[in-house]
């Protein structure tokens, strides 16, 4: 299967080919890949793609996967509507 047909980040439609292109250009930090490709920035927040990307970085740099730092985990853990947040705040006051 061609690398451009393999989707790594399903939220943002990022292919294995795009990841490999950036690795070859020297962007080997997951935070950099995230900012330039939007991997891990979609609704799943990297829970689907991050391990796959770690594996690609590990293979590319020839280092153990546990040495490849993942992205900073940020809130929220799942999508919540702004209205729900607002209404929750009113109930509390």
């Amino acid at each position: 299967m061609s690398k451009k047909d393999i989707i790594i980040c399903r939220c943002e439609d990022v292919t294995l080919e795009e990841i490999h292109q950036l690795l070859e250009r020297g962007y080997t930090n997951i935070e950099e890949l995230k900012r330039l490709l939007r991997v891990g920035m979609g609704p799943c927040q990297g829970t689907t793609c991050m391990q796959l990307i770690q594996r690609e970085v590990s293979k590319f740099l020839n280092i153990p996967i546990e040495e490849v730092k993942t992205q900073k985990v940020r809130p929220l853990t799942m999508g919540v509507k702004l209205n729900a947040i607002k209404e929750g705040a009113c109930d509390e006051s």
Binding site: G42, P43, Q45, P75, G79, K81, L82, I85, A89
Partner: peptide
């Protein structure tokens, strides 16, 4: 959430995914 729902009400229907 309170501010945006006041000034731009329909945006309240959108989900926050990251801060």
């Amino acid at each position: 959430a309170k501010t945006v729902c006041t000034l731009l009400p329909p945006i309240g229907n959108l989900r926050v995914i990251r801060q």
